[in-house]
């Protein structure tokens, strides 16, 4: 990281020799600050929109077959802080959020949203991170191999496979894998959450379409890089093909992949909702869907807020990383 920082500093010196160093630091601080402020704005919009969208839904969280007596309903509304004018409720909720309190779930009585998320979120995040690593690693590897063998059979097969993986939704890939590797050839468990083996199928299902997308991205960008002059120089120096591609080519060709990492995290987190459903994994996705179906407002808002915070935060990190890798963004953004 430090080395990168120094390098971007050097590049800055070359492109803008007349600017003093503190201007560079200033730009960097402004860049990071700007992104952080937009993070706060986005989160505020998300919280507000979710809160009011839930409140305009017809049908409250306590609607059952039998109508509750007015007294009990009043008590319930009071307990879950759903009484009083809507604006007061809204500001109260904002206040609670600032204290880190996501309130009580109306469906899972007596459990707070904080507890539910503390139990289920680590599961989703583990699954997501493993899929993240598989998708990035396999995608970059496949894409660069395909680019190195442009128009060869490896390239054709890999790219057809990639388009196939993009076209197949995860709830087709998942059950197919289950039919194959858990039922016809019982090698792996059908679902659930326990040892490492139960992780393999869900992680593969989740990662497949994004590995494919990254492979396409890497291939396109690698092809462009390989036509550059400095690659010809590297070849002329007598470096072998592997060194040319992985040492010189990949450094530049990886940039579009890095800018895709933010959206990738978002897609994995939402995609894991379906994968958790297929494989019976007790993650946050299941609670998210059930909160939508049960009108469980605070649980829904809690999941949305936590997801958005994770994603926007991750995007911020990726942006900053990208700023270091490609300082032109810092300078001319």
């Amino acid at each position: 990281m430090l080395e990168r920082l120094l390098k971007s500093h050097l590049l800055f010196k070359i492109t803008e020799p007349n600017l003093p160093a503190y201007r560079f630091h200033l730009k960097m601080i402004r860049f990071i600050g700007g992104r952080a402020i937009s993070l706060i704005i986005i989160l505020f919009c998300v919280v507000t929109a979710t809160f009011f969208l839930i409140r305009i839904m017809p049908g409250g969280p306590f609607d059952r077959e039998r109508k509750l007596s007015p007294n009990i309903e009043k008590q319930l509304l009071k307990k879950y802080k759903l009484d009083g004018p809507i604006l007061d409720q809204y500001f109260n909720y904002l206040g609670d959020l600032l204290h880190g309190d996501l309130r009580l779930s109306t469906k899972y009585r007596n459990r707070s949203v904080n507890e539910i998320l503390a139990d289920s979120l680590p599961v989703s995040v583990t699954l997501g991170s493993i899929a993240f690593c598989i998708a990035t690693f396999a995608g970059v590897l496949l894409g660069s191999v395909a680019a190195a063998n442009q128009h060869g059979w490896i390239d054709r097969t890999a790219m057809f496979g990639a388009l196939l993986a993009i076209s197949l939704p995860s709830f087709v890939i998942g059950p197919m894998l289950v039919l194959l590797f858990a039922i016809n050839f019982p090698l792996l468990p059908v679902g659930g959450w326990g040892d490492f083996r139960s992780l393999i199928l869900p992680a593969l299902t989740l990662a497949a379409p994004y590995a494919a997308y990254i492979a396409r991205l890497t291939r396109a960008s690698m092809l462009e890089v390989l036509s550059q002059d400095y690659i010809r120089t590297a070849r002329a120096k007598g470096l072998n093909e592997i060194q040319v591609i992985y040492k010189h080519g990949l450094r530049v060709a990886i940039l579009p992949v890095i800018s895709f990492l933010g959206p990738l995290a978002a897609n994995l987190l939402t995609g894991s909702i379906v994968v958790e459903n297929i494989f019976n994994i007790p993650g946050a996705g299941g609670f998210f869907v059930s909160s939508v179906l049960n009108r469980d407002g605070f649980l829904l808002a809690g999941v949305v807020i936590v997801y958005c915070t994770l994603l926007v935060g991750f995007n911020l990190v990726v942006d900053i990383l990208y700023g270091f890798l490609d300082p032109r963004i810092l300078l001319y953004d």
């Binding site: 929109a49 979710t50 987190l269 939402t270 909702i273 998210f288 939508v292 829904l300 997801y307 958005c308």
Partner: peptide, 8 residues
């Protein structure tokens, strides 16, 4: 995330 927005 689009799908979260959609569900809500």
């Amino acid at each position: 995330p689009r799908l979260i927005l959609l569900l809500v």
